[in-house]
Write a protein that binds this DNA or RNA. Structure first.
Lengths: 148, 148
DNA sequence: TTACGTGCAAATAATTTGCAGTCCC
DNA sequence: GGGACTGCAAATTATTTGCACGTAA
């Protein structure tokens, strides 16, 4: 999976020690809560997580973390490039632990977000941005519904 | 403005009378507020509108409409296919009066949404949906930032 | 020590809802 | 008249913020 980019090495299926190293690398103090959340996020491969989901996992695991800290941590991780924000519906924000170029399936009813392997979607003939602007990223969301 | 001709006839650049006809066609009663909002929405070509924007326009035009009715109307119009929901950031929802297939530019800083003409983006090699699901729509959002 | 982190509770922001009163057919 | 529609205010939901206290370097 992510065994390529230097920055991504320790991020997938990493050990507890890797989380510590990861935090050090991005310049965030390895606090109890960041270590725990880092493990939940990066300890089991690619995931799509909302603040609520992560909060639930922490609670269930009896790791005391406040919801505010969940939000702080998700945003800090995003700012240093460990996570990627994904917007699909108007309400919740999803955070994707896969920071490589790829797009998403979204099952409307189930609020289920799914990676589309990079290369499975080709966006061709990219329109050039209006004058004075440059493209930062292109997001593709393929919306799904259950077959009848 | 436009005095068009086809299926979308009354939908783009329409006159007051056209809004009435449009409402009748989709089975919504032509109330004072729906006529007014319909005119704001469809009276001047393609637009991207939030509830807040539309509310502001109505207020400025001294058309008495409550915010709740703005939301109701936007959703009703969407449900009958007159509008299309566009999700770009986690917060506001945009409604697009252009219901044809097309994608969007989004200038992050400015909260400015812009149509990309259909055909200007080609999504090739569409991934087939997971078993039991079918694709309802594919959204492409090209995110922009001001050049330095 | 000391700046960075965290928790809590209160504050926002966008949107929804309940319901009494109003309007169209 | 009767159901569809509207307005208001209160309720929800997701997220943010202010600030006293805790903790890694």
């Amino acid at each position: 999976m992510l065994q390529s980019m230097t920055a991504a090495v320790e991020l997938t299926g990493c050990t507890w020690h890797d989380v510590k190293a990861m935090l050090h690398r991005v310049g965030l103090r390895p606090t109890r809560q960041r270590l725990a959340l880092g493990w939940f996020l990066f300890g089991k491969g690619d995931r799509h997580v909302t603040a609520e989901i992560l909060f639930g996992e922490a609670s269930r695991a009896k790791v005391p973390v406040s919801l505010a800290t969940i939000y702080n941590t998700l945003h800090q991780f995003t700012d240093v490039g460990l996570l990627r924000r994904v917007v699909v519906d108007g309400s919740k924000i999803y955070f994707d632990t896969n920071i490589n170029t790829h797009h998403h399936f979204f099952a409307e009813g189930e609020n289920e977000l799914l990676d589309i392997a990079d290369g499975d979607v080709l966006v061709g003939n990219m329109p050039k941005p209006p004058d004075g602007y440059e493209t930062t990223r292109t997001d593709v969301i393929v919306r799904l519904k259950r077959k009848t």
